Simulated scan of single mutants.
Amino acid sequence: MRRRKRPRRRKVWVKQWLTRRPLYGYYEQLLQEVNREDPKGYKNFLRVDADLFGELLDRVSPRIKKQITTYREPGLKLAVTLHHLAAGASYSDSMYSFRVCKNTISKFVPEILEALIQEYSGEVLPAIVTTEQWQEIADDFQTNWNFPHACGALDGKHVRIKNPKNSGSLFYNYKGFFSIILLALVDSNYKLIWVNVGANDSASDAQLFNNTELRTMLEINSLNLPDSYPLPCDDKNTPYFLIGDDAFALRTWMMKPYSRRKLTNEERIFTYRICYPAIARLVIDQEKREQQLSTW
């Protein structure tokens, strides 16, 4: 019979620098300081302001709250998770900044994400968008971006993941990392209207879109878009549409930019207007956006 190996005794149960989290941790010190002195910096760090963070915490705490100990405080868990989503920080990076062991982080991040999904899934993405709601979205596009009749901006984004087992290079993208694709339709304020997530990198945005129910509904005119109506300073009826980049085919319900060669001034302005509402411009801050729009 084989002898059982005796379990090795740990030399150190908790690393000492982790125990000094209340003095130097991001959540306890840096975020509090930034919130007092630089609210925009706080929002940039977590992608939510302090008020919204408080609302998120109040709503998900009952789902995630366990016995309160030094490393199980719900606010800390939520802050680590939001920063992980906002900046793509690895568990190791978060360990040194928030002073929480990466093994602990790996356990509670999925727990927080599941709690957020359960709490907000019923109200974030509507099952059906009415004609009146589409009209409000189009009106906002005209007000915010000077682009009438647009009912949403469609684009794809790569979400970094660990390579799934036995998947080879299936999820390896041209940017040099493993990812899945998030295809999203957003309104003029970047709020999600529709999402499709989970495809591997071998599929393009257009291929993904062609296989979705969104395209089918657009083709059979069952999406409840408003009836055709003249554009400003025009007397011809023009249908309402989505906007996308060069990856998508031009249709009556899909507008795309002109080719960037030999553009007239009017075509250049149109291309500018159609490109900037895209989801890829989320990183541009509001002040810079307003300054650029005022030059046209």
Rank of each mutant, 00 (worst) to 15 (best):
R160A: 15
K165G: 14
K157E: 02
K157V: 03
F171I: 08
F141K: 00
F147W: 11
P164G: 10
K165E: 08
N163Y: 03
P148G: 12
T143K: 08
K157S: 11
W145T: 00
R160T: 15
D139V: 03
L154E: 05
S169P: 11
W145R: 02
R160C: 07
A138P: 02
G152W: 12
P164S: 14
G152S: 13
K162V: 14
D140N: 14
N173V: 08
D140G: 02
K162N: 10
Q133K: 15
K162W: 04
C151D: 08
G176L: 09
G168I: 12
T143Q: 11
N163F: 00
D139I: 01
K162S: 04
G176I: 05
N144I: 10
N144F: 08
G152M: 07
E136D: 15
D139M: 06
D155M: 00
G168K: 11
L154N: 03
K175G: 04
D155N: 04
V159K: 02
I161A: 04
A153Y: 07
A153T: 10
C151G: 12
Y174W: 10
I137N: 08
A138S: 15
Q142I: 01
A138I: 03
I161Y: 07
P148T: 09
K165T: 11
F141M: 09
Y172W: 14
S167W: 10
P148H: 06
N146S: 10
G156I: 02
F147E: 04
G176C: 14
N166L: 12
H149A: 07
F141N: 09
N163C: 15
R160W: 00
G176Y: 05
D139Y: 02
E136H: 12
P164M: 12
P148C: 09
K175C: 04
G156D: 00
C151F: 12
